[in-house]
């Protein structure tokens, strides 16, 4: 088993992992209810499992390309983003000040007033 084979196989595994993650997240975006999501996620898993035992590298590459194309076609236009994550509605809103900095909220009133 050559080094190039192993490297290519690792790259494919990573690609499939990321594709599955994206597709699963997208499934959750499309499903408005949890019980709909379970069925969709199960179907998605089955579609991945169907090609589990494919050995030929070029076939795998083609399958990955097909699946990525399919994913891009059915991507959700307005995906859910965790509010605190980059792109979320609360991202960098009211960040905690750096350590060593203290803000005193005394509204202009001082000790010597």
């Amino acid at each position: 088993m050559s080094v190039s084979y192993i490297a290519r196989r690792a790259a494919q595994k990573e690609k499939v992992r990321i594709l599955y993650r994206r597709a699963l997240k997208d499934t959750l975006n499309w499903a408005v209810h949890r019980h709909l999501f379970y069925q969709d996620a199960s179907d998605l898993r089955e579609r991945f499992e169907a090609n589990k035992n494919v050995e030929d590298l070029d076939t795998i590459d083609r399958l990955i390309a097909d699946a990525e194309g399919h994913y891009n076609k059915f991507r959700h236009p307005d995906p859910y983003i965790v509010p605190w994550a980059p792109g979320g509605s609360k991202f960098t809103r009211n960040p905690t000040p750096p350590s060593g900095i203290e803000i005193v909220y005394n509204y202009g009133r001082e000790d010597n007033d």
Partner: peptide
């Protein structure tokens, strides 16, 4: 590997965080 992806997604939802893809 796909089970691991599912686990991480469930954990993300549970904790309300977003871990990157890589």
């Amino acid at each position: 590997s796909l089970d691991t992806v599912e686990i991480m997604m469930a954990l993300e939802e549970k904790f309300g965080v977003s871990i990157g893809e890589g």
